[in-house]
């Protein structure tokens, strides 16, 4: 069976798995964005806490995805729960890091000027600091999405949802019929999804970056 025949034959399954993969990545990155930005805001004012947070994110980053997924089987079992947890944890790392870096990179004189004209702390955060840090945070979200795409493929090993299923089915049938088709479908599907998401980020970045700091 040629690759195109395979795609036609399994169209429904492939569309479903692609949708699952996209939806899993989208939801986990969204959750990581909320948690990560909140954590970044919480720690960025104290230099010690900020260093600790970026350091911890760096250390956690060295833990391989397979090891993390394996570790999560013990408390969470197989399936969606460990996959979503692992993806969220991985996505958190670049987002927290970039939130802290973005917020500490905001020019202090701007913050003081805003305080000087009578803005409250919350207003300064919402109207000065976060908009200025947004491009850096968005870069972090973009990296997180790419990461989640790849880790999502390995999540199929712990029976997670998505296109990784195709890759592992191909692996199980190594040397047999359709092994190449399955692996290729899974891999190319994820590459296409990653490019699609990346394209969305360019658009989102254009639309959400404040006019004054657009390049």
């Amino acid at each position: 069976m040629s690759f195109w025949e395979y795609l036609g034959d399994r169209r429904e399954l492939l569309v479903f798995e692609t949708w699952q993969h996209a939806s899993m990545v989208f939801q986990t990155v969204l959750a990581a964005l909320v948690i990560g930005v909140a954590a970044g805001i919480a720690v960025h004012r104290s230099e010690r806490l900020a260093t600790l947070a970026t350091g911890a994110a760096g250390v956690a980053f060295t833990v391989p995805s397979l090891a993390l997924l394996g570790l999560l089987i013990t408390p969470l079992g197989l399936g969606v729960a460990p996959s979503v947890t692992a993806l969220t944890l991985y996505s958190l790392l670049p987002i927290v890091r970039n939130t802290v870096v973005g917020l500490t990179g905001v020019d202090r004189t701007l913050v003081e000027a805003a305080r000087g004209i009578g803005m409250t702390r919350a207003a300064v955060l919402l109207r000065i600091e976060l908009p200025l840090a947004w491009p850096v945070i968005l870069t972090g979200v973009r990296v997180a999405t790419q990461l989640a795409m790849g880790v999502g493929a390995i999540a199929a090993y712990v029976s997670g949802p998505g296109l990784g299923e195709q890759i592992f089915s191909g692996l199980a049938r190594l040397g047999g019929a359709n092994a190449l088709n399955m692996t290729l479908a899974g891999t190319l599907g994820i590459v296409l999804l990653a490019l699609l998401f990346d394209g969305c980020f360019v658009v989102v970045g254009r639309l959400t970056t404040p006019r004054g700091i657009r390049d």
Partner: peptide, 16 residues
């Protein structure tokens, strides 16, 4: 683009 290919996919493709 190459970076966005999942590692596990590349490993299995090469193994095939």
């Amino acid at each position: 683009i190459g970076q966005s290919a999942p590692t596990i996919g590349v490993v299995v493709l090469l193994a095939v």
